[in-house]
Structures are given as C-alpha cells and as structure tokens.
Amino acid sequence: KFNKERVIAIGEIMRLPNLNSLQVVAFINSLRDDPSQSANLLAEAKKLNDAQAP
C-alpha cells in the first residue's frame, strides 16, 4: 500500500511548478525514508508550492 502511495506522491511532487530542485529532492528523500508519511509529505509539498507561487 505505502509503495503505491509513495510512487503517486513522488509523481505529484515532481509536477509542482513552484518548488525548486532542492525542495523536490528533499521531499522525495523524506518519502523514501518513511513511505507511510506519503499523504502528509504530499500535503506539505503542495502547501509550500502554493506559498511560493508568483
């Protein structure tokens, strides 16, 4: 279950337009470290993406 959620979360994070490459890598590394947190990490990535919108 967590592996599928992690793959989906990674794909979504990679498509967030307002994150820089270091932020994307940090979120992906966090997902690798704890796949059970996929939903929480994706939500945090989306919040950061929205906050950094031009």
Rank of each mutant, 00 (worst) to 15 (best):
D33W: 09
E5I: 12
R32V: 15
V7M: 14
R15H: 09
N3M: 04
M14C: 15
V7E: 15
S38D: 04
N20V: 06
L42A: 04
L31G: 00
P54R: 08
F27M: 05
S21W: 14
R6K: 12
P54S: 09
Q52L: 06
P17E: 07
V24P: 00
S21H: 13
E5M: 12
D33V: 12
N40Q: 11
L31D: 01
F27N: 00
S38F: 14
K47C: 14
P54W: 05
L41D: 01
A9I: 12
M14G: 05
S21I: 11
P17T: 06
L16K: 00
L42R: 04
A53Y: 07
N20S: 13
A45F: 03
I10C: 10
S38H: 14
F2M: 15
A53M: 09
L42Y: 04
N20Q: 07
F27P: 01
P54E: 09
I10S: 04
N18P: 00
N49G: 01
D33A: 09
A53W: 05
S21D: 05
R15L: 13
E12M: 12
Q37R: 13
V7N: 10
K47H: 08
L41K: 08
L16H: 02
S21T: 14
D50H: 08
P54L: 08
F27A: 02
R32A: 14
I10V: 06
A26L: 06
I10Q: 07
V25P: 01
N40S: 13
D33F: 12
I28W: 04
K46T: 05
I13S: 01
E44C: 12
D33S: 10
N49L: 01
R32P: 05
L48Q: 04
A39Q: 11
L16Y: 04
P35V: 05
L31W: 05
A43D: 11
E12V: 13
L48E: 03
K1Y: 10
R15D: 04
N3R: 02
L31F: 04
D50Q: 08
E12W: 06
S30V: 09
A26Y: 08
I13W: 01
A53R: 09
I10W: 03
M14W: 03
D33L: 11
A39V: 12
I13F: 03
E44Q: 12
M14L: 08
A51H: 07
S36C: 13
L48F: 04
Q23N: 02
Q52D: 02
L22T: 12
N20D: 08
L48R: 03
E5L: 11
S36Q: 10
A45D: 00
